[in-house]
């Protein structure tokens, strides 16, 4: 679905990413983990058209650089790490999510309106849809922008550390919604997370960045088998059974 072939990013003299080769599979949830400064966010930013990179990025077989911004926006959306303090309401944000499909000054069609409604419902923001986003709490704000991403309705959805500043309760809720994007809506979801426990327990696939390159790209099982947590983060792994009998991985 998403292929990085020898992708490098330079910012001034600094190498942000070096020779990244990775394949992100379709309709699965992939989590990117890595230490701070290892290039995780930059990997996602390459897909916005704002970052100059060398190498090739293929989006569903097509070269990313050959796509117009509008076409690209219909195939892939990004929720950045820092969410702006805006006075727009959730409903207005969700409406903005349809922008890649509208002509300049164009009006929303009936199907656009339905997509907006569904997106607000998906993000569980029906009650708060007319509140300005800058009056919402952190968790609510995250869901407001989730509504916008859902309204954009792209086959590939990217999230850059969406749970970084959320409390434990909201982290779980949010990841559950992203899981729903992959499972119920057959989207390819890519998340950058810094919490390894949350990452491994949510993901189907994992991509590990270390020292500005990709050192691992594979299934969750392969990640655990190869003990990547030890080699990259110096963490031990163990499995516990929760009260429902489901196995959960813990790192310490």
């Amino acid at each position: 679905m998403l292929c990085f072939e020898n992708v490098s990013v330079l910012r001034g003299r600094k190498t942000v990413l070096h020779n990244v080769n990775a394949r992100i599979p379709k309709e699965k949830l992939t989590v990117i983990v890595g230490k701070n400064g290892s290039g995780k966010s930059s990997l996602l930013s390459c897909l916005t058209g704002l970052v100059r990179y060398t190498g090739k990025i293929l989006l569903d077989g097509e070269d990313l650089s050959a796509l117009s911004p509008r076409t690209r926006a219909q195939k892939c959306s990004l929720m950045p790490q820092l969410l702006p303090d805006t006075a727009l309401t959730t409903r207005q944000l969700a409406t903005l999510g349809r922008e890649p499909y509208l002509a300049p000054g164009g009006k929303l069609s009936q199907s656009d309106r339905e997509t907006v409604e569904n997106a607000i419902r998906f993000a569980r923001m029906e009650d708060l849809q007319d509140t300005p986003v800058n009056r919402l709490s952190g968790g609510e704000r995250q869901r407001a922008f989730l509504a916008m991403a859902a309204a954009q309705n792209t086959p590939l959805v990217l999230f850059d550390e969406p749970t970084a500043h959320l409390d434990a309760d909201h982290v779980g809720c949010f990841l559950q919604r992203v899981r729903a994007l992959a499972d119920e809506q057959q989207k390819t979801a890519v998340l950058v997370l810094h919490d390894l426990t949350a990452a491994v327990n949510t993901a189907d696939y994992l991509l590990v960045t270390d020292q500005n390159t990709c050192v691992f790209c594979g299934t969750k099982e392969e990640f655990l088998q190869q003990n990547m947590a030890q080699s990259v983060f110096n963490l031990h792994q163990t499995a516990v059974c929760d009260p429902d009998g489901k196995e959960r991985i813990l790192f310490y």
């Binding site: 926006a73 929720m79 805006t86 727009l88 890649p100 954009q152």
Partner: peptide
């Protein structure tokens, strides 16, 4: 007004 990343994400 949402910032460059959001604007770029929207095409």
């Amino acid at each position: 007004s949402l910032g460059d990343l959001h604007a770029a994400s929207l095409g």
